[in-house]
Simulated scan of single mutants.
Amino acid sequence: MDRHKILFVCAGNICRSPLAEGIFRHLAIKAGQGSEFEVDSAGTGSWHQGERPDRRSMEVASDHGVDISAQRARRIEAADFHRFDLILTMDQDNLKNLRKIAPADTLGKLHLFNAFTLGSGKDIPDPYYGGHEDFEATYTMLLAGCNALLPLAGKALRAS
């Protein structure tokens, strides 16, 4: 069976997208579907390349039983547009940036996370300059979206 390949994208790949990757992987494993998905995350910028997720993202994830400490930040690569079946951005700015660099035949793979998962045009706000409560709120938003994504992803990706 082919695995469904999902890439989560934010700006620096240290706060939101690593959380989304970790949450989705955790939920898929809990549902007995871990082997059905290849999940990764990336940033549109390279400021944090090679770094672990922000300590506050790791703490919030850990508080909820999700370990993202082995992840390392990376910048999206040209090959990612063809490698992944679904590319979900955390906000409109990152979606706009990806649309500028994506090959034309991959534009249909690019979606705003909340629009694809929950039918909402709301961004997942970047908690980087906030405190623990901002990271907790981000986790809660991503959890809601990832819970909706799990049953959607297999169906949507099988249909494409």
Rank of each mutant, 00 (worst) to 15 (best):
A153N: 01
M58S: 14
A78V: 05
S17E: 01
L27Q: 08
G43Q: 03
T106A: 12
D80M: 01
L19S: 14
S41Q: 01
L7D: 09
L149H: 11
L112Q: 08
M1F: 12
G45Q: 07
R52E: 10
M141F: 09
P53L: 00
R25A: 09
T140F: 02
T44L: 01
S62E: 13
M1T: 12
G108Y: 03
D85R: 00
S35C: 07
N97I: 01
P127W: 09
G131E: 14
I87S: 06
H64M: 02
A61T: 15
E21F: 08
D134H: 14
V66H: 11
E38K: 10
I23V: 11
S57L: 03
T89Y: 08
L157Q: 03
R74C: 05
M58N: 12
D80W: 09
G130D: 07
I124R: 05
D93L: 04
G108N: 11
G12T: 04
G32H: 08
N94M: 01
R55K: 07
D80F: 11
L7A: 01
H4E: 02
Y129R: 07
H64C: 03
N147I: 07
I101R: 14
D126A: 02
I87E: 03
T44W: 06
H111I: 06
V39F: 09
G43P: 10
A104Y: 08
R55A: 11
V39G: 10
D93M: 05
A115I: 02
L86M: 04
L107N: 01
L27G: 02
I87Y: 03
A70V: 11
Q49C: 10
M90P: 13
G22P: 06
G121P: 09
D134S: 14
S160K: 12
D126C: 06
Q71H: 13
E36D: 14
M1H: 14
Y128H: 15
N13P: 11
I87L: 06
Y129T: 00
K5F: 13
F24R: 11
L112K: 08
